[in-house]
Every structure is written in structure tokens, then in C-alpha cells.
């Protein structure tokens, strides 16, 4: 409990925390608005809507919110290395492990909140910035709604989202077919990025190196997991590929870069495929284990 209280106070007492969060929120909204203003006319499908909401820019390894959360996590650990308040009190291993867990516990919810806040802000920004010719499919057609949302809507006695008052129009963006799951995955991705930031910084004992490592991880992991799946003969699930912010790894692994046919390899395996889960979870587990092992060899954070 003491460690949690300490970590909360540490995080809130730093101006850089708030600056970073504000910068992520504003930057995210700005990028989303710019992306939205450049969408071609016509109906906006759910995956494209998700890309707008998460402000995913191609060739950036992580969405902005995830990157910001990762930086927050890395700074949180780098603080212990650079400015140890009571350096001698972290000599014993259990105390360092407790501190690490406390950091994970605090940074995770903060990252989740950050992701939700960016989604909220981006929804508004995208709605305002969409050009006139673009219509959101989920707003106009009840068929484009995701199953859960349409249940809720019909339960409320409405035929579609368009029956709602006009100021609720931004709600259509995250309500499209497959969008809620994708957005949930985005929140999870942000949390995982924050944790990864903490762990990489604890491994390297430096916030900057931790962030760099965090940026390098997604392409490496995607390529690795994709190659692994390909070797085992399983296709990469379409849904996962749609969700991924940085698809170059998959494209490279499956040869799409050189004009290979997507459909030939992309099957319709569900997201809960055990092989996929194992392939994704293994690196995270390895990272956590490595961090704990390295801590055991150390005397200071």
C-alpha cells in the first residue's frame, strides 16, 4: 500500500506527467482531425473509422496514445534511476519487485484512462473535421451497426442511430461493425504499451532507451509472430491485421510488400485463436520475466 501511495504521489506531483498527457490528447485530436479532413467522399466504413479515431498514422509503430503511455511508463521507472528519493531503501529484492508492480498497477489504469480520453476527444474532432461528402455508415444504416450496439438500440425502441438527436451523431463513429472490439483492443494496446515502457526502462535503466526499445518492439514482434504463424501454416487473422497499427511487419512476413495477394493467405481465424494468443502473450511474458530476473541481479532499481 505504501508503495502504491508513493507511486501515486510521485506521478501526480510531477509537472511532466500532466504536460505529457495534455500533449498526447491534443496531438492525437489534431492528427485525427487532419486525417479526417482528408478522407475521400462517400460512406465511411467501420475499419476506416477506427483508424481515424485512434489517429493511426502509417509507418509510426504505435498510435499516439500508446506511445504517450509508453513514455509515461518509461519515465516512471527512469525517475527511480535518475532521482532516487531514498536510494538505500530499495536494496532488498522484494522491495524492488513491489515497487515495479506498483508502477505497473498505477501506470496501467492511467494508460487506459488516457486511451479512453483520446477516443472521446478524437470522436468529436473527427466528427467536426469530416468533409461534407462523407457519411458515416453506422449513422445512416442500421445494418452497419455492430451486433451489440444494434441490440441496445433496438432494446431502446429505436430503429437506428439516426433516430437519436443530432448532437449524438459522433456516437456513430465507434458504433460501426467491429468497431467496439477494435477500440477495446486499442485501449488494451495502450495499457500494454505503458507496461512495456516500464519494463524496458527497468531493463535498460534509462527512460530514453526504454522508449526507443518500445518503439522497436512492435515491428519486430509483428514480423516475428507473423513468421511464426506462417511457418505453422496458420494464416494471420484479418481482424488482427486490421487492428494492428503498424502492418509493415505482417506485409513483409507474408510477402504482400512485393505484390502478393492478401486474400491468399489471410484467412478468417478468430482473434481468440490459441496459437495467436500464445504468440502474442509469449513476448510479454518473456519481458516481464527478464525484468524480474535482472532485478534479482541488481542492488539498486
Amino acid at each position: 500500500m505504501r508503495v502504491l501511495a508513493y507511486e501515486l504521489r510521485r506521478l501526480c506531483g510531477l509537472r511532466s506527467t500532466w504536460l505529457l498527457l495534455a500533449a498526447v490528447l491534443i496531438g492525437d485530436a489534431a492528427v485525427a482531425a487532419v486525417l479526417a479532413s482528408q478522407t475521400p467522399g462517400g460512406q465511411l466504413a467501420a475499419p476506416a473509422g477506427v483508424r481515424l479515431l485512434t489517429a493511426t498514422v502509417p509507418l509510426i509503430p504505435l498510435p499516439f496514445a500508446a506511445l504517450g503511455a509508453g513514455v509515461l511508463g518509461a519515465l516512471s521507472y527512469g525517475h527511480e534511476v535518475r532521482h532516487p528519493g531514498l536510494p538505500a531503501s530499495l536494496v532488498s529484492y522484494p522491495r524492488r519487485v513491489r515497487l515495479l508492480l506498483a508502477k505497473l498497477l498505477v501506470v496501467g489504469p492511467v494508460a487506459a484512462l488516457l486511451a479512453l480520453a483520446t477516443l472521446l476527444l478524437d470522436t468529436v474532432a473527427v466528427h467536426l473535421a469530416l468533409p461534407g461528402g462523407v457519411t458515416v455508415a453506422a449513422w445512416a444504416e442500421p445494418a452497419a451497426l455492430s451486433a451489440r450496439v444494434s441490440e441496445v438500440v433496438s432494446g431502446a425502441g429505436l430503429s437506428g442511430l439516426s433516430d437519436l438527436p443530432g448532437f449524438l451523431a459522433p456516437l456513430a463513429l465507434p458504433a460501426g461493425h467491429g468497431a467496439p472490439a477494435a477500440l477495446l483492443a486499442f485501449v488494451l494496446l495502450t495499457v500494454v504499451a505503458a507496461w512495456t515502457g516500464v519494463l524496458t526502462a527497468s531493463l535498460t535503466r534509462s527512460a530514453a532507451v526504454g522508449v526507443l526499445l518500445l518503439c522497436a518492439l512492435p515491428p519486430l514482434l509483428e514480423s516475428g509472430v507473423a513468421l511464426l504463424l506462417r511457418r505453422t501454416g496458420r494464416p494471420w487473422p484479418v481482424r488482427a491485421a486490421e487492428l494492428l497499427p503498424f502492418q509493415s511487419g505482417i506485409e513483409w512476413a507474408y510477402g504482400w510488400v512485393y505484390g502478393g495477394a492478401h486474400e491468399a493467405v489471410v484467412g478468417s481465424v478468430s482473434l481468440t485463436d490459441p496459437a495467436l494468443l500464445a504468440a502474442v502473450a509469449a513476448p510479454a511474458a518473456v519481458l516481464l520475466l527478464a525484468a524480474l530476473l535482472v532485478q534479482a541481479r541488481r542492488r539498486t532499481p
Binding site: R2, V3, Y6, L8, R9, G13, G85, L86
Partner: peptide, 12 residues
């Protein structure tokens, strides 16, 4: 003050 209160929380 914030610094010392933070450490006070760590010390308990």
C-alpha cells in the same frame, strides 16, 4: 513539500 510528502508515503 511534494517531494518530501512523496517520500513520507514511501516510508509510511
Amino acid at each position: 513539500q511534494g517531494h518530501l510528502r512523496m517520500l513520507a508515503a514511501a516510508v509510511g
